[in-house]
Amino acid sequence: MILTNIETVPGKTIVEHYGIVQGSTVRAKHIGRDLMAGLKNLVGGELKGYTELLQDSREQALARLSEQARELGANAVVNIRFATSSVAQGAAELFVYGTAVTVVDEMGEQ
């Protein structure tokens, strides 16, 4: 699955498109991590637990997006956008959406 956040896939031609696909996830860290993050707030620095959380969320959201695109028969998703929301307190909510397309090599005919 080719994922880009520009409107095309460079070096390839889009031959079909299937509309939008989305992936979303809401994830929380356990309370111990939250407490540690609270302590870390006193001295500053990277919150490793939360970095990890966001990374996992992003990966899962992208995996869901790719899965949806695959079901549509697409082989690429272009113009991907990430967004966040904050419904749940202390949880990371990520969603990602893009346009599912089929691409072929610029020269060849699939």
Binding site: T25, A28, I31, D34, Q60, V87, E93
Partner: peptide, 12 residues
Amino acid sequence: RNIFGGAVTSYE
């Protein structure tokens, strides 16, 4: 879920 961590499926 906030206590245990993991996917907050109820909000998904």
